[in-house]
Design a protein around this nucleic acid. Sequence first.
DNA 1: AACAAAATGTTATAGTGTTACATATCACAG
DNA 2: CTGTGATATGTAACACTATAACATTTTGTT
Lengths: 160, 160
Amino acid sequence: MSQPIADHPFTPHDHQQCIDQAMARAEALCRRQRARLTPLRRRVLELLWQSHRPVGAYELLEQLRTGSRAAPPTVYRALDFLQRVGLAHRLASLNAYTGCCYPGESHAGQFLICRSCQASSELSSAGVSRSIRQATAAAGFSVEQQTVEIHGLCSRCRED
Amino acid sequence: MSQPIADHPFTPHDHQQCIDQAMARAEALCRRQRARLTPLRRRVLELLWQSHRPVGAYELLEQLRTGSRAAPPTVYRALDFLQRVGLAHRLASLNAYTGCCYPGESHAGQFLICRSCQASSELSSAGVSRSIRQATAAAGFSVEQQTVEIHGLCSRCRED
DNA sequence: AACAAAATGTTATAGTGTTACATATCACAG
DNA sequence: CTGTGATATGTAACACTATAACATTTTGTT
Ligand SMILES: [Zn+2]
Ligand SMILES: [Zn+2]
Ligand SMILES: [Zn+2]
Ligand SMILES: [Zn+2]
């Protein structure tokens, strides 16, 4: 498994590098999958990567509207595409969306979400996945999709 | 930790016993906490325990309406109360609510949700909690609330 | 150039949850 | 009891999130 795009999103870092890497890997992934990263879809992905804070669909819509007009289906379709090819996730506990840190790699969506700075960090913890598989196997349950969203305080916000 | 109300909700069982036990433990818990389990709140809790399928707020509203009238705030307030005292949970990935199987005991909400029969089972897996704490501690993150919702197929639905 | 498939625009509507304020019920002190 | 403040419920309007249905444009291919 290669390096995640943002390994420590809660600590100060060169975020432009996150953005550049995310867009570069998105390009590559879409080329490989023959998926069309159109200007609109690219724009939405860029908006998602503006920060590590998950963004609501209507907030994206606002930002898209500067210049062109746009209605809800526009942004929802772009988000559907990004989720389908594995470039973004939806966070059910926030009704918000975020760029994927492991594009093109099979992984379960596991997220840490700071209630103070609102940033989120995508984990891909084998230990968590394993313990979930163990707990579910004991019940004879076969896992198809997992929603793991941990709310709390990130290291940086705890200092204050 | 005492026995959960429904240990194996996916397998055939005497569900009336689930209901009776849930209501009895709710009474006891509210007495202990000096919380008021009013007729309305009790009714909503009974509706939640009609089956092991999580129920949407507007679906509860429909059922409340047989007889008395009711508007959204009525059911949302009852659900808020039930969640506050620890008698119910909200499942973010479903926008639905379900009765708690471990009332009065400190536990993280972890759920298995079958896409075929729609039933859900509340886990309280120490292993899952531990691996989450480990993974988050490594990042210096302090957990306050966890959303763990595992979608898949239950043992019974896998047989078919 | 002609055509089919994919993407986007547009309007309306469905589904989920909250705000604000009025009314009713309850608990408790006097 | 009875008044009084706190808690719970009724009611109407509204905010936020997401989708359906259909028209139009763009793209890739023959
Ligand atoms: Zn970054
Ligand atoms: Zn991801
Ligand atoms: Zn049962
Ligand atoms: Zn519970």
